[in-house]
Amino acid sequence: MASLPITPWPTEQAEIVPLPRPRLVAVETAAQPAVAAARLSVLEWSIVALAERDSIASLREPGRIAAALESLFGLHRPNKLANPRLEVLRRLAVFVWRQGWKVPKSELQAFLAEGFTLDHYELVQASIAASRNPALKRGSIR
């Protein structure tokens, strides 16, 4: 069994050096940069508005049988958007229109991964909630 050598305890007392007293420094709160409010472009708002007509089923990929039935009976499914950023916004907006705040975590993560922020998410939620409730549009609820 290996062990470390034990050094004897010093018999002399070590000199205690006093530490300097801490200084308080004032912090400027006005110097912090202002956070810009979250905004969506006109195109992005139109995607949110168009998502009102889509159902949750429009977000799922059709299976082989569903695709065959759609082609056989001429059923139409909403197309995905070509721009991945707008498609993620559309998917999130469909969930918000249909389920309110019950948006799947994976959809919210994809939304954030495309460069949107939680402020954008709250803006979409508030806008859709206001369009559902006329009292919120008038600003009578405080």
Rank of each mutant, 00 (worst) to 15 (best):
I6A: 15
I56Y: 02
I6K: 14
P78L: 03
V94A: 03
L43G: 12
L112Q: 12
P62A: 06
R64C: 04
E28C: 13
S71F: 03
T7Y: 13
I6S: 15
L108C: 13
L59S: 03
V25H: 05
V94I: 05
R91N: 06
E70Q: 01
A113S: 14
I65G: 02
V27R: 02
N79I: 04
E70G: 06
V27P: 01
W9M: 09
Q32Y: 14
F95Q: 05
I16Q: 11
I6F: 14
S46F: 05
D54Y: 01
L59C: 09
R39C: 13
R23W: 03
Q99E: 12
F95V: 06
A26N: 05
V94C: 01
P18Y: 04
E44D: 11
P84F: 05
Q13D: 14
S58Y: 00
F95G: 04
R53Y: 12
S55K: 03
R77V: 01
P5F: 12
A51F: 00
P78M: 04
W45H: 09
R77T: 05
E28N: 14
L50P: 00
R39N: 12
L69Q: 01
L72W: 02
F95I: 05
V103Y: 03
I47M: 06
L92N: 03
A30G: 11
V48D: 02
V96F: 02
I56P: 02
P8I: 07
A68M: 10
A93W: 00
L19V: 07
L75A: 10
P33S: 11
S55G: 15
V48G: 06
L86S: 11
A67I: 04
A49P: 02
I65C: 01
R53Q: 14
V27F: 06
E44I: 07
E15R: 06
S3H: 13
G63M: 05
V96D: 04
V25F: 05
S55P: 01
L108S: 11
S71G: 05
R60V: 03
I6Y: 13
P10S: 15
S58I: 00
L112N: 11
F73D: 08
N79G: 11
V96M: 08
P10A: 15
P5C: 14
S106T: 08
W45P: 04
E52Q: 13
A36M: 02
E28R: 09
A38G: 06
A36R: 04
L59P: 01
L19R: 07
L50K: 05
V35R: 01
L89V: 06
E87G: 07
P62T: 05
A36E: 08
L92I: 06
L19F: 10
V27I: 10
V88N: 06
E107Y: 08
T7V: 14
W101D: 13
R85H: 11
T7N: 15
E87N: 10
T7A: 15
W45S: 09
L72Y: 01
L75G: 07
R91E: 10
P10R: 14
P10L: 15
W97K: 00
P8D: 14
R53A: 15
A57W: 03
A34G: 02
